[in-house]
Design a protein around this nucleic acid. Sequence first.
DNA 1: TTTCATAGTATACATTTGGAAACTTACTAG
DNA 2: CTAGTAAGTTTCCAAATGTATACTATGAAA
Lengths: 121, 121
Amino acid sequence: MYTMKECTVYKTIDMIGKKWTLLILLELYKGQEKYKRFNEIKNGLQDITPKVLSGRLKEMEKIELVQKNVDSSFVPIKSEYALTKKGEELLCVVQEMKRWGLKWKMGNKECGLTTCKECVL
Amino acid sequence: MYTMKECTVYKTIDMIGKKWTLLILLELYKGQEKYKRFNEIKNGLQDITPKVLSGRLKEMEKIELVQKNVDSSFVPIKSEYALTKKGEELLCVVQEMKRWGLKWKMGNKECGLTTCKECVL
DNA sequence: TTTCATAGTATACATTTGGAAACTTACTAG
DNA sequence: CTAGTAAGTTTCCAAATGTATACTATGAAA
């Protein structure tokens, strides 16, 4: 018999539906550099606490949305995070959210690009 | 100064990011009838409790994703829910999730249609 | 020697969600 | 009178999640 848990959408939401996950994804996408450091992400997402960010990044690494590189030859140690292909392809979900959010105005002006790497809105 | 809370994506996730919201949306979309009754939705989403469903439907009505009609001439009372235009247009987000979920296989076979109104996967 | 920075971890606590189960109201059917 | 149904509500509890604050290691700089 059919169960909810077999539903693709259900499974997907289960993977990416937690608070911050998609916002971290978007933050990693922004800017011109592929890799971002822990504190860069943290500062971009102002309200996130290191505990939560650290937790989410680990989950995201595990399900292969994010790839982590550690360079311990640096002092202080240098950790970098980037989107994987799988993670990058999730951006279309974020873009649809943005498109929808802009259309059903929530006080924001449209920058014109749902795929803009620069604007913050 | 710029705050996270002004971000369109952030605001959108805040509105629709809670557990069950998108699944209820999808459930309302399924089938041939525009309107669905409380217990139909509940049965479609097996694991949802009436408390949670009731709560989500109210939130969704408030932000105008869902339209509710009550016909109290019926016995027992008849409540029906349908997607609004605003709600319907959120389905593209769900569709992108489905597309992504199918591409990065999670054990499901593709039905071929991300917009299928019938299949459960 | 004290301070600073990075990239977190640890601890304690508060708040938010969600879930299970029983209960409610109104009317109808047997 | 009892049972049943629809559409929830209520209560209580557990788990997930978030927050604040402090702390860690390492080495460089002042």
